[in-house]
Design a protein around this nucleic acid. Structure first.
Length: 274
DNA sequence: AGGCAGGACTACA
DNA sequence: TGTAGTCCTGCC
């Protein structure tokens, strides 16, 4: 068990920011996170955060995963004080972190995310995990399922995937799994590319457009310049940034700003006040 | 009860 | 290069 004090870290906000679909609220202040074969329980009271895992996993996996060694005050202070909207958004979501999630998992997760709502996305992913993922038993006897490997998912037919409730996205996931499994798509190659190149390479995958590619770049490749524009962000840009989002000013942290805006739109604005 | 949810594809012009 | 029509499902 690791217990540390953290600024600008709020596990509830990270979960609510919609970048991770395998995080769950076990009870009032206990969150469970599954990433690859790793599993952790996170409890937070104020700035004190407990990670229920080994020292080694914390140092070498969860610190990079949660981006704990980055200074998010730097991002918040970079916000233009005359931009009252972004100030409010950043203040509201000041505990958000940009996670470093697995590239393969993000590819499949955000293929499923299109034209879909978060609750169903979670269900779809749990379905493919329990169907095709590796079962893992914790020391205390509880079990969970890892994210299915490319080979395991490639073994599923499009119909099998539809049975997991993916709908028309089944054919996207099916083809992506086949392409990755047989080496037609080399994820480790994409991992080493620049943002621009990685975005282009991802968009060559059937079912991956600009928005999904940017989500993958931001949440898996930690390309903080990626700025996924979905319908919510589109509305904000039209409403608050008619002259365009100040990309120059936020170079190198546009994705962080996107997350503040996204989370603010989802949770910070009383419904009917738009 | 019908539109829409964290889009992208295809088919057209 | 730009824009309609289409696609699964379920929630409001």
């Amino acid at each position: 068990m690791i217990s540390i004090e953290l600024e600008n870290f709020n596990i509830r906000q990270i979960m609510g920011s919609g970048q991770c679909f395998r995080m769950n609220e076990a009870d009032a202040d206990c969150f469970t996170v599954i990433a690859g074969k790793k599993y952790v329980e996170v409890r937070q009271k104020g700035q004190v955060v407990d990670f229920d895992c080994s020292q080694e996993d914390f140092l070498f996996f969860w610190i990079p995963y949660f981006d704990l060694d980055a200074d998010y005050n730097r991002y918040i202070q970079a916000v233009n004080p005359r931009d009252s909207y972004l100030c409010a958004a950043a203040h509201h979501g000041q505990g958000i972190r940009i996670l470093r999630q697995d590239l393969w998992e993000m590819l499949i997760s955000f293929l499923i995310s299109q034209q879909n709502n978060i609750r169903r996305i979670r269900r779809c992913i749990e379905n493919i995990c329990t169907q095709y993922g590796e079962r893992i038993i914790l020391p205390d006897g509880r079990e969970y399922y890892g994210f299915p490997k490319p080979l395991a998912l490639a073994a599923a037919s499009e119909e099998d995937l539809r049975a997991c409730n993916l709908g028309y996205r089944a054919k996207y996931v099916h083809q992506a799994a086949l392409a990755v499994a047989d080496g037609q798509i080399d994820l480790s190659e994409i991992r080493s590319m620049s943002y621009k190149k990685a975005r282009e390479a991802l968009m060559e995958i059937y079912g991956v457009g600009g928005k999904v590619a940017d989500c993958i770049c931001l949440f898996a490749l930690h390309q903080l310049d990626a700025f996924p524009v979905d319908t919510h962000i589109r509305q904000v840009l039209d409403q608050h940034y008619k002259r365009g989002f100040p990309n120059r000013r936020y170079k190198g942290m546009r994705g962080v700003m996107q997350q503040y805006i996204f989370y603010y739109e989802l949770t910070g604005i009383p419904s009917g006040d738009k």
